[in-house]
């Protein structure tokens, strides 16, 4: 009994220290973030950016942080990195209107406006809808339907008299949970195999084959978004939303 009591005390102390450290670190992050915002407000974009990047290096995945970082990059004229961080912010919060507005503004200011291959009517609507479908959103929906399924199952088991009424809800919530679970894993697998990247250099040349001597098909400019299609040695085959495809060397684009 005494031993159990001691173990309990130790666990409590460890948890207290860890929580306190977490709170302190959190306070430190907020302080740094506020400082970065002050620098931004004062027009010192380079300093602000440096502080935002320090926070990002601490593995803080926060869409507001990414948004501000992207703004700082934009102010410094680095369109490629600005887009990269807007896209990262959108992954965390696809419903953020500020990020979407700024991203649209940025795209309009890019050197080359890439018009998607299918940009009319239903395709446009689907494309717009798909931009909201991220792994995070699918994950949240999956958790919601999973929780709903658990609750409905509970009710079903506890109240035999309501079973007839609850049967539809059980099947419905189970089906939705399964659908979103499958979609989540499918999207995860697809994005792992075909990650999207952004051009951060001023211009890169896209070649017809994975050899340096091959023909230059076209050039893409800073801020262009592309999808990895295939990987071969030091080369990757990419495609752009307007349907163009080609080979570029690894490491010259930043993956979102």
């Amino acid at each position: 009994m005494r031993r159990l009591f001691l173990i309990g005390i130790i666990i409590f102390l460890v948890l207290t220290v860890v929580t306190a450290a977490g709170i302190c670190a959190g306070t430190d992050h907020v302080k740094l973030y506020s400082e970065a915002n002050s620098q931004y407000a004062a027009g010192e974009y380079a300093q602000a950016l440096s502080l935002y990047l320090q926070l990002i290096e601490r593995d803080i995945n926060n869409h507001s942080l990414y948004y501000n970082t992207a703004n700082a990059y934009f102010k410094l004229g680095e369109t490629g990195y600005a887009r990269l961080y807007y896209e990262r912010a959108l992954l965390l919060n696809p419903f953020d209107r500020d990020v979407r507005n700024n991203l649209r503004f940025l795209q309009n200011n890019m050197k080359e406006k890439i018009v998607p291959l299918y940009n009319e009517g239903l395709f446009k609507a689907l494309s717009s809808l798909s931009s909201f479908i991220t792994q995070r959103i699918l994950g949240i929906l999956e958790i919601i339907f999973f929780t709903a399924f658990i609750i409905v199952i509970h009710l079903y088991l506890i109240f035999p008299s309501l079973r007839e009424n609850l049967r539809g809800s059980v099947y419905g919530s189970l089906a939705l949970f399964m659908i979103f679970l499958v979609l989540l894993f499918a999207l995860n697998s697809y994005e792992k195999n075909h990650p999207k990247g952004v051009v951060v250099d001023e211009t890169i040349e896209v070649l017809s084959a994975p050899v340096i001597e091959s023909e230059v098909l076209f050039s893409v400019y800073e801020g262009a978004k592309m999808k990895l299609k295939e990987e071969r040695g030091d080369w990757i085959r990419i495609s752009i939303s307007d349907g163009r495809e080609g080979w570029i060397q690894k490491g010259i684009i930043e993956f979102i």
């Binding site: 907020v30 926060n62 869409h63 507001s64 965390l92 949240i140 989540l184 894993f185």
Partner: peptide, 13 residues
């Protein structure tokens, strides 16, 4: 204006 800089996961997986 944020009180806590919450880190979020891009994918729950």
């Amino acid at each position: 204006d944020i009180k806590r800089l919450m880190s979020r996961s891009q994918s729950f997986l």
